[in-house]
């Protein structure tokens, strides 16, 4: 977690929604996917993850259900709602334009 986690933290919701695009998942699996994708350089704290789940659930972007207990562990699964998909698309567009602007603003001729 050496990279600028503060910069990433603002995109926690987008990151979680992105993970759920591929299907329902639970907290640990989502966090593991994030860790794998970033080659162990980034993962969410449990507290951050659950605050985000609660927030996304409240606004209707995701919904939760308790998983099947037969698999041994009792897990709370999250699924993305149509509203969640819309929100994700919007956040993605927001990010693209923000990235573009930030690049223009902070990259100088010398650093190129």
């Amino acid at each position: 977690m050496s990279i600028a986690s503060d910069l990433i933290r603002g995109h926690t919701d987008t990151i979680i929604l992105a993970q759920l695009q591929n299907g329902d998942s639970y907290g640990y699996e989502i966090n593991k996917a994030i860790r794998d994708k970033t080659e162990n350089r980034y993962e969410l704290k449990e507290a951050t993850l659950y605050s985000a789940f609660k927030r996304l659930e409240e606004v209707g972007c995701i919904s939760a259900y308790w998983g099947d207990e037969r698999s041994g562990a009792r897990r709370r699964y999250y699924t993305i709602t149509p509203l969640g998909r819309q929100t994700y698309e919007r956040l993605l567009v927001d990010w693209e334009s923000a990235k573009h602007l930030i690049d223009k603003l902070i990259v100088t001729e010398e650093s190129k």
Binding site: Y28, E46, Y50
Partner: peptide, 17 residues
Amino acid sequence: VEVKEEILQNLTDKYND
């Protein structure tokens, strides 16, 4: 209780891994 159980489950998964 639910939040606690959820976090505990994830920690247990992590711990086992």
